[in-house]
Amino acid sequence: MNAGETPRHFLCMKILIIEDDTQTRNYIVAGLKEAGHTVDAAKDGLEGLFLAQEANHDLLIVDRMLPGLDGLSLVKKLRGASNSVPVLFLTTMSGINDRVEGLNAGADDYLVKPFAFNELDARVNALLRRPRETVEMKVLRVCGIEIDLMKRVVKRDGQLIDLQPTEFRLLEYLVRHAGQVVTRTMLLENVWDFHFDPKTNIVETHISRLRSKLNTGNKSDIIQTVRGAGYRIHETA
């Protein structure tokens, strides 16, 4: 699969693959990473259930026939625990009753093996475009950056970053507009609630502090200064 075969995404989604066949699992992981997503993988149902419960994922891709805990039971357990993360089933079980059983268990979509990656990618994108209020209201992600809006916690590559309240609001606004140029006026209005120009370097000062904290450990700078326009969060880190 060539890089041009799948679309790039402004926001990196965090996807969990639960698949016991090594070749299939590696194939899906490689393709989704190439498409710009962050991907976790599990080789059996018990490991998959643990990862699904412990981490915030935007989508699960689950094989029906898994060792340890089958995919159907795994999804039922998640739904029973009020976990509403979208689930795409992968399976060789192509009968109508099998599909109905999977959907009734709580799956959102169903893809029969063997499959073309382009179709998998299209189904993934369709699921990720659906409104997911419980997920999107809690966690924002741009490649490497994770903002938990409920806990007010920010991580970069899994490392906690200690931000002051204004720095948190500034980063949140930039991430919500990832890939777009955000002007100084937009930041003054939406982060500081200033509807006038205070004639200070308040924006520049906070951007500098935020960069310093995000880039600790010689990490790349994901905040781009667009000369004469404003700032933009890189779509990839």
Rank of each mutant, 00 (worst) to 15 (best):
K14S: 12
K14G: 03
K14D: 12
K14W: 06
K14V: 03
I15G: 02
I15N: 01
I15F: 03
L16Q: 08
I17T: 09
I17F: 00
I17W: 00
I18V: 15
I18M: 11
E19V: 05
E19N: 03
E19I: 07
D20S: 10
D21S: 13
T22W: 05
T22S: 10
Q23W: 04
Q23D: 11
Q23H: 08
Q23T: 11
T24V: 12
T24D: 02
T24W: 00
R25V: 05
N26H: 09
N26G: 07
N26D: 12
Y27N: 05
Y27M: 11
Y27L: 11
Y27G: 00
I28K: 02
I28N: 02
I28T: 02
V29T: 14
V29W: 04
V29I: 13
A30G: 07
G31I: 02
G31R: 13
G31H: 11
L32E: 06
K33S: 13
K33A: 10
K33P: 04
K33I: 13
K33V: 14
K33E: 15
E34W: 05
E34L: 14
E34D: 12
A35D: 08
A35I: 06
A35N: 03
A35E: 11
A35G: 05
A35T: 06
G36N: 00
G36R: 01
G36I: 01
H37A: 00
H37R: 01
T38V: 06
T38K: 06
T38I: 04
V39H: 08
D40Y: 15
D40A: 15
A41N: 11
A41C: 12
A42L: 06
A42V: 06
A42M: 07
K43S: 12
K43F: 06
K43G: 07
K43N: 09
K43C: 08
K43P: 02
